[in-house]
Design a protein around this nucleic acid. Structure first.
Length: 942
DNA sequence: GTCATCACG
DNA sequence: GACGTACGTGATGACC
């Protein structure tokens, strides 16, 4: 199948570590199953996608000229003759991975690539042999793998590529990892050993120490010869006692570069795959998306395009749209007269389900004007109703007046649509419907009932993918919708939708509605199948209308006060700059971490510098704080400057720019389906991170004010996450403390350190508080130690003590991790599923990270669920208080604006509604408490 | 576009 | 005694 071509300096040889890839794909990718029989095919899918991309040359700057996938054959190799324990502690293969091995080889052949393996050799040895052969002929080599054992091969000509992280591994990256150049990697590995492969190494010597020793002695052999000269007693003795082990280890980690291979390198020249075989394979695996991609790439009947041309130059990537018979854009209709519109409305009443999508002239929903409306009632049966398109751009003052296309007058069209939008018997379906509802609200339309496909997808589970239309259409239908960029252009010259001609606008706009309706048909039934109907109905479904209203309300900020603050911050910064230049003896940019690092550590030569992974000096708060404590003046100045700079650029300057011209208020955008835990997020501007912790920062909060005659009411849940932890982990002592209204951090301190409550020092309480938070975050000794500035050992003891004093916590953590491993997700007490990826990762660090996420998600998620439930009830709750409006949500806090005289009424209504928001779904075994205060500005309302 | 930093819960 | 970590977000300026 593959053909032969000479390998020379113009060649690019790509060698894929097939076996390594399978394991990583298996752990990193969702457990996809085959549609025909439910067989596990996740790793095969990941592998096939990667092959396709690599052969196209998407991951590399140059396409391969020679390409092969190399596998391990069997598990016994010549290394077991050297050391019988080699790879002896490998865990058994996961059951659902085993059947995928032969299919991965099938995939390789289907894509027209050689599949190489040899009894008695690991894939790594074959790769090493071929790579060195190609290098000798002057070719460039890319090894597709992230296996550190292959890093010894890296050279000027040979590099590695980690396709999962899209990360190139060259000489520099190897030096970072091992602290030595590639030639010395085997010596480092021989000393440090490897627990994964069960390479013994020298006990007590790790990579860091090994690199240090080799810096001095160059080679392992030289080091061992001079072992008795090493000054440190421990190292000397270990080295002398383990010479033999070190040498055996070196043999184990050294890859063979002279395997008597059966296939010649030249025979790896890429050639066209057998199209029939390829599609046959893709169909067998039921890979819809990839099939569409391959088809799009190849064009109908064509086999070119996947591979290089004969002249060796990369062929241009063909941009053929996937021919997808299910989407027929020809059938979309542009509605320009009243009679046709009435017929579409009638169709909507007949089908009872209508996808609705608005086109506007701006992404900013507080600003956007309606430009057109789309409806879809059946597959391929969709229309676009233009309402405010401008004429062709032709220059002249009158350019938008004269030649606008024929359109139904806006108000007339909306009057015809209104009965449909408000009909209780017609379900309106949107995708990210919050946006459309926000615009509709400003035209006094309130579509209901409605479904939101983005939220349905979110309720089905978070953490696997985002829930935007492009992702959903691609994932479920293998369909790539027209991108807005394609019709409007990019950058400064980008058109707004009202400037786009109707023949272009119609297919784009109608397609979105068509896709939305199909997504609804596909996803809605899954809610029941996945047992998340209650999640969707009671925590998600109604949010778009509530949040759209909040965004439209906006919040008032005091422009003059913010400007005054900007001036004040600028003055303080200027003063600090002068002081800093004085000390440093030179001018520099205080905003540049790079320059700060160089001045502090290179020029001034201060101790305690650490480097980031990119090799720059670390200059974070913790580092500078430490230097300042040691009596250095400059770090303190930099920290103060940074504080003012942050306040000025991110808040006082930025907020003024965000004041809407028409409303005079600031309108944020809340994302309802963005986070993995169920929280909302806020952006443009982010109003969920307005300063509060420092005195200077709180001045920003002073500038968030109520209208004349009104006040802001801030209502926040007190320690909701800790209360939920006490509930879900069934922590008896803690639950009792909450019931009794005891200071929970003081209680913790008293339990942990045996101090009576009335003798508690603030210091002790603060430490206990940090531990409480740590538990919620999936505590680690290192993290706790860093946070409260104690040793890791001490932190470890605290944690142990905590587990003793609060039995239940340990069980909760273990159970949660177990659930994540078993199911791939964890659930909140309200049933929201949060997928945790990486929980089975072979990398210990990734796994630990996933475990902490698993522990945290049900707690943070339950708090988010409760807040969602509370928000959904707010329209009803505040309707009894005249003029009360919900403005903001900050995770455990709601901010309202209300006429001054009604503030007490509002608090009386809101507080119990929030406190009982978990009911009736879950009866929390600790009381939830809400604190609410009213004031003229947000700062004083706390 | 990515990184480092820092604001919030 | 080697790894390198507290959970969830978004905005900024510097730098490539």
């Amino acid at each position: 199948m593959s053909k032969s071509a000479p390998v020379d300096k113009n060649s690019h040889v790509v060698l894929v570590d097939g076996s390594g890839y399978i394991f990583r794909a298996y752990h990193a990718l969702p457990p996809l199953t085959r549609k025909t029989d439910g067989a596990p095919v996740g790793a095969v899918a990941g592998f096939s996608n990667m092959l396709f991309k690599l052969l196209q040359g998407q991951n590399n700057d140059a396409r391969p000229t020679h390409f092969a996938v190399i596998f391990d054959a069997g598990s016994i190799t010549f290394r077991n003759d050297i050391y019988d324990q080699y790879k002896a502690n490998r865990p058994d293969l996961p059951e659902d991975l085993i059947p995928q091995f032969p299919w991965v080889r099938d995939a390789t052949r289907a894509f027209g690539s050689p599949s190489i393996e040899m009894e008695g050799f690991e894939a790594d040895d074959l790769i090493a042999t071929y790579a060195r052969q190609a290098e000798a002929k002057g070719a460039r080599v890319t090894i597709i793998s992230s296996d550190k054992d292959l890093m010894q091969l890296v050279s000027e000509k040979i590099s590695m590529l980690d396709t999962m992280k899209n990360k190139d591994i060259g000489i520099e990256q190897v030096k970072e990892k091992f602290g030595v150049s590639p030639e010395q990697v085997i010596d480092v590995q021989a000393l440090a050993g490897d627990s994964v492969d069960n390479v013994p190494g020298v006990p007590g010597i790790g990579v860091k120490t090994a690199a240090l020793l080799l810096e001095q002695y160059q080679t392992l052999e030289n080091l061992l010869d001079h072992a008795e000269e090493i000054p440190q007693k421990g190292r000397r003795e270990k080295l002398m006692a383990n010479k033999e082990m070190a040498l055996i280890s070196k043999q184990l980690v050294t890859l063979k570069t002279d395997v008597d291979v059966e296939e010649a390198l030249e025979d790896f020249a890429v050639s066209d795959p057998d199209v029939e075989e390829l599609f046959d394979f893709l169909e067998r695996m039921t890979f819809r998306t990839l099939t569409a991609r391959v088809r799009a790439q190849m064009g109908e009947g064509a086999t070119q395009g996947l591979r290089k041309d004969d002249d060796g130059e990369p062929a241009p990537v063909e941009r053929t749209a996937p021919e997808n018979i299910t989407f027929d854009k020809e059938k979309y209709v542009c509605v320009q007269d009243v009679e046709t519109l009435k017929r579409w409305v009638k169709r909507g009443f007949e089908t009872g389900v209508v996808a609705v999508d608005l086109e506007t002239n701006s992404l900013d929903s507080a600003e956007a004007k309606m430009v057109g409306v789309c409806l879809a009632v059946e597959d391929n049966e969709a229309c676009y109703i233009p309402l405010a398109h401008l004429g062709e751009d032709g220059g002249g003052a009158d350019m938008f007046g004269g030649d606008a296309p024929k359109q139904i007058p806006m108000q007339e069209a909306l009057d015809i649509l209104e009965p449909l939008l408000h009909a209780p018997g017609v379900l309106k379906v949107g995708q990210n419907f919050k946006y459309d509802l926000g615009v509709f609200q400003r035209y006094d339309l309130y579509p209901a009932p409605y479904d939101d496909t983005m939220l349905i997808s979110y309720a089905l589970g978070t953490g696997l993918h985002n829930h935007g239309m492009d992702a959903l259409a691609e994932m479920h239908f293998g369909h790539k919708a027209i991108a807005f960029k394609e019709i409007a252009g990019t950058g400064k010259a980008q058109k707004t939708f009202d400037q786009i001609s109707l023949d272009v606008a119609t297919p784009y706009a109608a397609e979105d509605a068509d896709v939305t309706l199909r997504l609804w048909k596909f996803l809605k039934p899954k809610l029941a199948a996945e047992q998340v109907v209650t999640v969707y109905e009671t925590m998600d479904r109604g949010l778009p209308a509530v949040v759209a209203k909040m965004e439209n309300e906006g919040v008032k900020v005091d422009r003059a006060e913010l400007s005054r603050l900007s001036g004040m911050f600028a003055q303080k910064m200027a003063g600090l700059e002068d002081e800093a230049y004085e000390i440093a003896g030179t001018k520099f940019n205080l905003g540049s971490p790079k320059q700060i690092g160089e001045i502090l550590f290179d020029e001034m030569g201060l101790e305690g510098g650490k480097k980031t992974k990119t090799g720059a000096w670390k200059t974070g708060v913790d580092i500078l704080e430490k230097l300042a404590d040691d009596g250095e003046a400059l770090p303190r100045i930099i920290l103060d400057w940074r504080g003012f700079s942050k306040l000025k650029s991110t808040y006082s300057d930025a907020l003024v720019k965000q004041i809407n011209d028409h409303t005079g208020r600031v309108h944020t955008s809340f994302s309802i389906a963005a986070t993995t835990t169920g929280r909302l997020s806020s952006s443009d501007p982010n109003l969920q991170n307005i300063p509060i912790r420092t005195e200077e920062g709180r001045k920003i909060r002073n500038a968030f004010v109520a209208e004349t005659g009104h006040v802001l009411v801030a209502a926040d849940y007190s320690q909701i996450e800790l209360r939920l932890l006490a509930h879900v982990a069934d922590l008896t002592t803690m639950k009792q403390a909450f019931a009794d209204g005891v200071d929970i951090h003081a209680l913790t301190a008293s339990e942990m350190f045996n101090v009576p409550l009335d003798e508690m020092t603030p210091e002790t309480r603060r430490n206990a508080k940090a531990i409480n938070f740590g538990i919620i975050y999936g505590i680690s000794a290192f993290g706790l130690a860093k946070n409260i500035g104690i040793s890791r050992t001490e932190a470890g003891e605290y944690i142990k003590k905590y587990f003793e004093k609060f039995p239940g916590i340990k069980a909760y953590m273990e159970d949660t991790k177990e659930r994540a491993r078993e199911d791939g997700y964890v659930k909140t007490i309200f049933g929201r599923k949060c997928h945790i990826s990486g929980i089975k990762d072979s990398n210990q660090m990734m796994r630990a990270f996933a475990e902490r996420q698993a522990i945290n998600a049900p707690i943070q998620g339950a708090a988010a669920d409760i807040m969602r439930r509370a928000m959904l009830r707010m329209p009803e709750v505040i309707s009894k208080v005249d003029g009360a409006r919900l403005l903001l949500q900050v995770h455990d806090e709601l901010v309202f604006e209300v006429p001054e005289k009604s503030a007490d009424d509002l608090i009386a209504a809101v507080k119990p509604a929030m406190e009982n928001a978990a009911m009736p779904a879950v009866n929390i075994s600790v009381p939830l408490e809400v604190e609410a205060h009213a004031a003229k500005n947000w700062n004083d309302a706390h």
